[in-house]
Design a binder for these strands. Structure first.
Lengths: 329, 329
DNA sequence: CTGAAAGCGCTAACAA
DNA sequence: TTGTTAGCGCTTTCAG
């Protein structure tokens, strides 16, 4: 069933069918109704390839993510695709893993599939240095960094202010009497570096010595994390609070501390369901993921409409207060 | 840059370029090498639309899911797309929500995009009754139900044996001396119904009276769930163990019980990170999601190769034992 | 092993 | 308002 069949059945030319299909401009109401009726009746759908061939667009956006099953990225995917969807786009999803080679490969693949733009979801999509493949791609196709930042023409950057998020949190701990915080992280990403910078800045203001020793990397599994935190406790390092780069690390810390009967403030990051599930429930820095994604889609939309939008937008974090730390006023 | 340009630069016809592009059958090694060199040099990629127009396939699979940010569905998406990807397919993702209308709409959209097959991920994609739109679609395009079951021609069904999973779990509780279990659930889906059936069957064998009263629906938020469980405890209902249809419900139950200083066995479902994060850690029925997805992709692959595969495969669950319940041997 | 040419189904410029 | 027709870039017979 193609446009010719419909044309024949309707007794008009394919051009008229095409017009009807594309909104019905310059078509008499009578013809429009007649054609529409036949289209419905036959259950005809225009061939997307033929259409794409002419227009060179398939109304499809590519989303690149390092690990689609990670709760955090999953939420990104969901919010982004929701927004894009309501703009009439479909979403082509690619989970790249953390290897640069395959990130590049997937990117090329998406470009060769003629997607209309690429959203790079999560700061792990960008390297700490270089990123020439992204800059290069941006010359061909709109690139939107969601929670990342690359300063190059054509790239739209939307990110949460993670640095300030951590910084403010340390300040609040300090104001509540906890002046010897520890910082746990696991992945070294762009946003990871930002968070550490926030910690360092606040630690310096607190006059803490040997700040580097307070910034501790944890392994990837929950039990591994817990074991490492226990080591840290056993090492006798003097601390009175814990801030983590992700809720899961905060959970591990919380469990290890509980095991030692230590009741210290613990703060996570992302404000995920894990913070709610943990006992005690965890105070967590909320990086406003949904707003972030909405904003990313919005900026892309405006840009594609030809507006001269900002190429970098930053959103502030909020502290979601729960049992593990209640700041004093 | 198109096939004509490459043909000109190579001094051969477009037909030869096309042959090279499609594996190089019936092309001399010499010509092949020459053309390949030019293709690489120019960084040429064939236009996917033109190709699709001729072949009527874009090597793209649609995945339909009710809520992409739900951890469980996110994992499905990840495993499925991983498998499909290694088969050379791209993934078009659509998050439909729980409304039937929009499920239908998204399905039609995917079909109109000429995807090569549709994976329906999660039993919430199917209705408890009817499902004519799925059966109808299956006439046009291969449909794969991941954790669902619809008996109609052309539909491949892969699911975990949730009924037996719950049944066996109740048996184990019983063998360990807990013979008055409660069952918590929240969504009424196909797999939800299976789980309840498993509970009822086991409860009947235990000789429990008023089984219906032991099957309790909880609301959607964690705090709401906890509150409801507390009500149940307060109501004086006689029980000595809890089994839930999802880990989050088990977490809620665990928290509510802990609040009342009740130390009873609690078992969740899905064996998610929540079970690990919870304190005490939760024993959980693992429905082998990864195997399930791998199997779904595998079956689709075989089917598309023309093999006459089974149209229904069931995978047994396993109990992931943690602190909240250790079955006695 | 290679080339010429006929589609694939649609859009859009141009005519009428 | 409607129709005619020339592409869009590729695959695939069919000849040679």
């Amino acid at each position: 069933m193609n446009i010719y069949d419909i044309a024949e059945k309707s007794g008009v030319s394919i051009a008229t069918i095409s017009r009807v299909l594309n909104g019905g401009k310059n078509v008499s109401q009578k013809t429009y109704d007649k054609v529409m009726a036949i289209i419905e009746e036959e259950g005809y759908t225009p061939n997307i390839f033929a259409r794409g061939l002419g227009l060179d667009t398939m109304q499809t956006i590519g989303i690149l993510v390092t690990d689609a099953k990670d709760t955090y990225y999953a939420r990104m995917i969901s919010y982004l695709s929701e927004g894009l969807h309501s703009l009439g786009f479909n979403v082509l999803l690619s989970s790249t893993g953390y290897d640069l080679k395959s990130k590049k490969r997937e990117m090329e693949l998406l470009i060769s599939k003629r997607v209309d733009a690429i959203f790079l979801a999560g700061s792990s999509q960008q390297e700490l240095k270089g990123n020439t493949h992204i800059k290069e791609a941006a010359k061909t196709i709109p690139i939107i960094m969601v929670n990342g930042y690359i300063d190059a023409p054509g790239i739209i950057n939307v990110s949460s202010n993670d640095r300030a998020g951590i910084y403010d949190c340390i300040r609040k701990l300090s104001a509540s009497g906890y002046q010897k915080p520890l910082y746990f992280y696991n992945h070294a990403t762009y946003s990871g570096a930002e968070k550490i910078a926030g910690f360092e800045a606040a630690a310096k203001e607190l006059g803490l010595a040997k700040v580097k020793e307070r910034i501790i990397q944890l392994p990837d599994t929950l039990t591994g994390m817990q074991a490492r935190v226990e080591q840290v406790i056993a090492s006798g390092l003097d601390f009175d609070a814990v801030v983590a780069s992700e809720d899961l690390l905060a959970v591990a810390a919380s469990k290890a501390l509980a095991g030692r009967k230590l009741d210290l403030p613990v703060v996570g990051f992302n404000n995920s369901i894990l913070a709610e599930v943990s006992s005690p429930t965890l105070t967590s820095i909320d990086n406003m993921l949904e707003s972030l994604c909405k904003m990313a889609v919005e900026l892309f939309h405006e840009r594609s409409l030809g507006k001269d939008t900002s190429s970098r937008v930053t959103i502030d974090c909020k502290l979601a207060v729960r049992e593990s730390f209640r700041p004093e006023e």
